[in-house]
């Protein structure tokens, strides 16, 4: 009985290895057979810009040239090239302009650095002006009670204000 059980286990193990192996073969075989789908091609073309038209992503460019470039991507995918290799190929042949963003090297760093720096400078100026504007009031409030510092606490106040606005609207 025990032997029998062992035999079954052995067979099962053997079968499993066989299945696994065929699966492996099947996998590699199918990878060689199937041509890349349009979606595979578009996923890469989307990240590239048409080398001839202005500001048109390659996946939607209707020109004949771009159709051929998409075929090229398909061919390269079928040859087993990776996404990065394909992109590098396009950059090498048509220049950095085919990328939807400039590569982060040299002069191109300016593209990425300037806007945040300017915005931070703007924020700094704004913050400083706030402080400068608010300071005089701090001094003022020491010298005497300031009416408007009281928060408008009740609904009545809101109603009053609303009415006043409507009346005084210029």
């Amino acid at each position: 009985m025990k032997n029998y059980k062992l035999r079954i286990t052995n067979y099962a193990l053997f079968a499993l290895v066989l299945i696994a192996l065929t699966g492996l073969f099947y996998q590699t075989a199918s990878a060689q057979d199937t041509t890349p789908t349009d979606d595979d091609v578009n996923a890469i073309a989307k990240q590239l810009y048409c080398p001839v038209c202005e500001n048109t992503p390659l996946d939607v460019c209707p020109t004949e040239a771009c159709r051929q470039w998409r075929e090229l991507i398909r061919q390269m995918l079928a040859e087993g090239k990776t996404e990065q290799e394909i992109k590098d190929y396009f950059v090498a042949n048509y220049g950095a302009r085919v990328l939807s963003e400039p590569p982060r090297t040299g002069f191109n760093w300016l593209v990425y650095i300037v806007p945040p720096v300017l915005i931070l400078v703007g924020a700094y100026i704004l913050f400083n002006s706030f402080r400068a504007w608010i300071k005089p009031r701090a001094v003022e409030s020491v010298s005497g009670p300031v009416k408007e510092a009281k928060p408008s606490s009740s609904d009545d106040e809101y109603v009053k204000r609303l009415e006043e606005e409507l009346k005084n609207r210029k």
Partner: peptide, 23 residues
């Protein structure tokens, strides 16, 4: 800056770049 930098790049370095939607 996104509009200007491709022009600046072409003018100063001679290479065309695209500043597209991801930026």
């Amino acid at each position: 800056w996104g509009v200007i930098s491709p022009l600046a790049s072409e003018l100063f370095t001679g290479t065309k770049i695209t500043v597209g939607p991801p930026y």
